[in-house]
Design a protein around this nucleic acid. Structure first.
Lengths: 292, 292
DNA sequence: TTTTTGTCTTTTATCTACAATAGACAGTTT
DNA sequence: AAACTGTCTATTGTAGATAAAAGACAAAAA
């Protein structure tokens, strides 16, 4: 195989959902915009839908013939892009498995393990290396530096520098800046989740990311915003393998966020710094606790 | 061709220099350590040297038969690694050429231009993307974000944050820390160059990198140290295309470095911050001036 | 016993090929 | 006139193949 057709499969599945809601599909360019793919892919989707007798397609007319059934969908595991698969597989190995710092990483072995070509694995490792967890020895192997205490400390040191600065610039944003509306929505979600914390505490992780990303974005500095990718990936995978006291931890973090949001609203630099530092401190402790 | 044999050619050239200094070469493992390559490459070098009748090689005996001549060396352009070639070629396009922000980058075109395969270009672009000058649109092209004023401002903002913190930790290093010795050597070089500034001002660029890298390294934070790569590459290529007033600029920067070094030695946090800020400010101005 | 060499295997770096996807353009429909 | 479709071309993403380089191990030499 040359290229995976995951873009097609994923867009096809999403298109099935659109189809369930109408009696006829819109034009090809419009579908393309809606699904975020090119017309070529849209036409492949329409062709497939015609084959499955889901629609009758003649030029502009795309009449829905029947509702999609479960078996019309492509299985979820076929719609993930190869790089996502590699990422997940790799993170499982280094975070969950007994991966010792200093261990060598073998491109060929990794590729065979995941069932993919070496090119994709190699490109993944190059992209991933900016996260500081692995290092390349040219003409030789990669070295796993490991998800260690030092790593976590170095990561949080930079994070704190960046976030304090971003929070300060957030507080200085013009009152009509759209970020304030985003902040409103995020704050509302905090209240919703807190009101039903026992059932919804798992939604924290995603909300946390959204909130901090919003703060970082207000720095208008690509290096600061890009750095948040590292935080995201670390926390994302990290939470998957460390679920002790998740409910309490998340509840506490939500409260801290609300204080932090209130401080931002006050636009008082001192309050902002205090609330930000307080939350970052407990975030750091949470991360460190789960390493040892 | 599969892999370029630039490692071999470069090591061969370096080995010729060793050969000029002795009457017999050492053992294979020792040569390997000296030149930083594997025994496989060493044996290829020895085989080639035998063919050229530079040495008589029988097991442990590697007797030098004649001195190397100019034509024994591989030409310099064949010893550069492919990624260096791609980097240079790419940087010339985006810094020197009329590369407009927003321009699309075409992997295939770039590869044909440089005379290499697409894989290498692709890997270069992935590695390079962390510098924030280009951005990938999946399944589509790369976008050049451009070496703009905003880029320079964002870069220097982070640089200043990192360097101020690194300078503070440098000043707090134990008196017997090896970094102080490195600092001595660097300071001495500053005096040497200043004493003969008219002839040696071009050496500033390399010394500047060495000095700031030393400071950043004392942060013991991989993210801070890695970030310095971006500074290095930007300043490196930047100086190549902007040489106006180089002598004066460099002389001034050298003086600022000396103040900065003296402040570090004083271990007084206030002095360090003042000297560091002052130098960073003029470095930023220099960079910004050359953009507009 | 320690180091070196001969030989062999494994892994990386790179090229080429090809399906998937994007995108351009002209002709057609509303 | 504006938007849409049919058709074609160009580019990306990925696999597979291969030379270069690294590295392992046993036999040989010091």
């Amino acid at each position: 195989m040359a290229k995976q057709n995951t873009v097609f499969k994923d867009a096809f599945n999403r298109c099935l959902k659109l189809l369930a809601e109408t009696s006829a599909l819109p034009s090809e360019p419009e579908l393309g915009t809606t699904l975020g793919v090119s017309r070529t892919t849209i036409r492949a989707i329409l062709t497939r839908m015609e084959e499955l007798q889901l629609i009758a397609w003649d030029k502009r007319a795309k009449v829905v013939l029947r509702q999609p059934k479960a078996e019309d969908y492509y299985p979820a595991e076929e719609t993930d892009s190869l790089s996502d698969i590699i990422e997940r597989s790799f993170m499982r190995r280094i975070l969950a498995g007994g991966a010792e710092p200093g261990m060598q990483i073998n491109e060929l072995e990794l590729a065979r393990d995941i069932g993919t070509g070496t090119t994709s694995v190699r490109e993944f490792l190059i992209r991933f290396s900016r996260f500081g967890l692995i290092e390349k020895r040219p003409n030789s192997h990669w070295i796993l530096k490991g998800f260690t205490r030092e790593f976590a400390l170095e990561l949080t040191e930079v994070r704190e520098m960046f976030e304090l600065r971003s929070a300060a610039s957030f507080a200085a944003l013009a009152p009509d800046h759209p970020a304030w509306n985003d902040l409103d929505r995020i704050e509302a979600l905090h209240h919703e989740i807190l009101a039903d914390i026992d059932n919804r505490y798992k939604e924290f992780s995603e909300l946390d990311e959204r909130f901090h990303l919003l703060v970082h974005t207000s720095s208008s500095n690509r290096f600061i915003v890009d750095f948040y990718d590292i935080i995201t990936i670390v926390f994302h995978y990290h939470y998957q393998w460390n679920k002790t006291n998740a409910r309490e931890r998340n509840a506490r973090a939500l409260e801290e966020h609300l204080d932090y949001i209130a401080a931002l609203r006050s636009r008082d630099p001192v309050k902002v710094e205090t609330a930000c530092r307080k939350h970052l401190k407990s975030a750091r402790e949470t991360l460190l606790q789960s390493i040892q």
